[in-house]
């Protein structure tokens, strides 16, 4: 019943199951707390699901009364919770901001920096399509002809990038510019390693994505 090292085929990098779990947990926490959808961690999810399957097969071989079996089951349930909640949070965001996400994702796919997994993207596109059909069937088809066009851009809901978030700096980052709306005195702050702050999401969005800060 070892948690042996797992090999990621794409980049031949060896990482332990422990590291994968830690990364997933941080990704889950960030996804829960950031206003926008973040780049996916599908490789980590797949890797962990594989590990869970492997563990479950081994647990089934153990006698029911074995203490190990309930400890392992408990751990697996904890990990499954993280994965489920992570994926659900992403789906919720996709549903809330579907039009905006599909539009932005199309551009990101062209530049090869997609945030969604292929199946999430398919889900988002189908969701938009279903919403459009639903609104057409229930409302638009029954109103005068000159009002029947479905205006996507007017329907789009965007995440609020100006919303305030709590974060902890994983490493020191200098010179975050905070916009001053009323005066013209933009403020510049430094995030020292380990320090905690509350500030707008927009100036630190990239730092969340490259892991320099962790949302709390």
């Amino acid at each position: 019943m070892d948690t042996e090292d797992i090999e990621l085929s794409e980049d031949e990098e060896e990482i332990t199951a422990e590291t994968v779990l830690k990364t997933l947990q941080n990704a889950w926490q960030n996804e829960r707390l950031s206003p926008e959808i973040l780049p996916h961690h599908n490789d980590m999810v797949e890797c962990m699901l594989g590990q869970i399957q492997h563990m479950e097969r081994n647990i089934n071989k153990l006698p029911k009364t074995d203490l190990r079996s309930c400890i392992h089951k408990m751990e697996l349930n904890r990990i499954k919770y993280i994965i489920c909640n992570y994926l659900k949070t992403r789906l919720n965001k996709i549903e809330s901001y579907c039009i905006a996400i599909v539009n932005e994702e199309k551009q990101r796919i062209e530049s090869g920096t997609n945030y969604l997994t292929p199946s999430e993207f398919r889900y988002a596109q189908e969701y938009v399509l279903n919403m459009e059909n639903h609104l057409k069937n229930t409302v638009l088809d029954h109103v005068p002809g000159n009002m029947q066009t479905f205006e996507f851009n007017k329907m789009a809901i965007y995440p609020n990038y100006q919303s305030h978030v709590f974060l902890k700096a994983n490493e020191t980052v200098n010179g975050i510019v905070l916009e001053d709306l009323l005066g013209d005195q933009d403020e510049e702050i430094d995030l020292e390693e380990g320090s905690q702050h509350i500030l707008q999401y927009k100036p630190i969005a990239d730092l969340v994505k490259n892991g320099k800060v962790q949302l709390v």
Binding site: N160, Q162, S163, H164, V165, F166, L178, E187, I189, S195, Q196, H197, I198, L199, Q200, V216
Partner: peptide, 25 residues
């Protein structure tokens, strides 16, 4: 629109959500 909160623990930070961030929004 900015505050530094060193040494506050996660549970303490969470207890002022969503009040503080929303008020700031």
């Amino acid at each position: 629109s900015y505050g530094r909160l060193d040494h506050l623990t996660m549970m303490e930070i969470n207890s002022v959500k969503p009040l503080l961030p929303q008020a700031m929004d």
